[in-house]
Design a protein around this nucleic acid. Structure first.
Lengths: 190, 190
DNA sequence: ACCTGAACACCGTTCAAGT
DNA sequence: ACCTGAACACCGTTCAAGT
């Protein structure tokens, strides 16, 4: 290798690797630079500092999560699809802790890319609700509600170190939400 | 003041102040030491490094959150109590962002204090569900489900910078959860 | 027992210099 | 255009020294 060449793709995958391996809070410019065998200052040619690196991981992580969730729902619809998506969501969070943690980023300035990827994830849920008969507004509310619940459960699971009865608790939450008022939502008192 | 004296209480309140003012990720030993007008190395006499400082804030934050939630439910029961608690939970998160962020800490070694404060928060929800007629196991499941949903919504709200229709979305989530299968949970298909 | 100051390793960031 | 190395400010942590 006569020359050291850093591509954005290589930078992204190296950053994702470090985040999943060492934890998102341990994601560092020097660490990623070492992974690429490059000086840390080189990264400034491609990204805007540490914040840029974190946003890069957040965008890639959200994209990967979206893909996993979307694929899990192929060939299913309604409650079955939503259950499969919730399970895939959790599996992704458990196997890619760094990428999952990057999802909880505090509000950044470059919300363009990040907001778009987040919207894409939500859209997967919206599509299922729409396919089940909910109109646009309610499908969106249901999608956000389910996403919030899933995310909150996984965030707390990620924090507490007691993975004992979490399967049953996750099922209970999803059942309690009735997967977002999908069926019989007209009969719910509210 | 002839002598500089650092108490654990002063250290805690200074750390909480910095976390809420500058953000939890900006919480720093040097920053807190400066707030106390003390050398940074002094803090090692009282706490175990930066991790200890973060755990301190997390424990204090969870305690404060628990107190706010508990107080909001005084004089109410059932759905009314749970709604008031959910609203108080959100109000605390919005007005004390640093303490709320400390709640999502990754698993630490000193889980004793932190796990106890988390348990105390959950207990408030459990008590309401028990008072509404649910038996111990189900009250605990319902409490965890509601806590997860609330937490997830607030975490996502804290991330996204669009506080437009969040009130309606929060209500929708709580309604969809039916506040944890409190009423008519026997009729839910699952 | 508590606090200090110096020291060290590490980090993010900038920038003149190389190719 | 991309990469480097030195430089700077800042941080967490340790420790001998002071009181």
């Amino acid at each position: 290798m006569p020359k050291k060449r850093v591509t954005l793709a290589a930078l992204t995958s190296a950053a994702v690797l470090v985040a999943d391996r060492d934890g998102f809070e341990a994601l560092t410019l020097n660490g990623v630079a070492a992974e690429l065998d490059v000086a840390a200052s080189t990264l400034y040619t491609h990204i805007y500092g540490l914040d840029g690196l974190k946003s890069l991981v957040a965008a890639a992580g959200t994209r990967n999560l979206t893909e996993a969730v979307r694929n899990s729902a192929i060939g299913a619809s309604g409650v079955d699809a939503l259950t499969a998506m919730a399970i895939a969501y959790r599996a992704f969070a458990l196997s890619h802790p760094g990428q999952f943690a990057s999802t909880l980023l505090p509000p950044r300035s470059d919300l363009d890319e990040l907001a778009a990827t987040n919207e894409a994830l939500l859209e997967v849920f919206v599509l299922v609700y729409r396919g089940a008969g909910l109109e646009a507004d309610e499908a969106r509310l249901a999608a956000r509600a389910l996403r919030s619940a899933i995310h909150g459960f996984l965030a707390l699971e990620h924090t507490t170190a007691t993975p004992s009865e979490h399967d049953a608790e996750y099922r209970y939450l999803l059942d309690a939400l009735q997967l977002g008022l999908l069926h019989d939502h007209a009969g719910v008192a509210r």
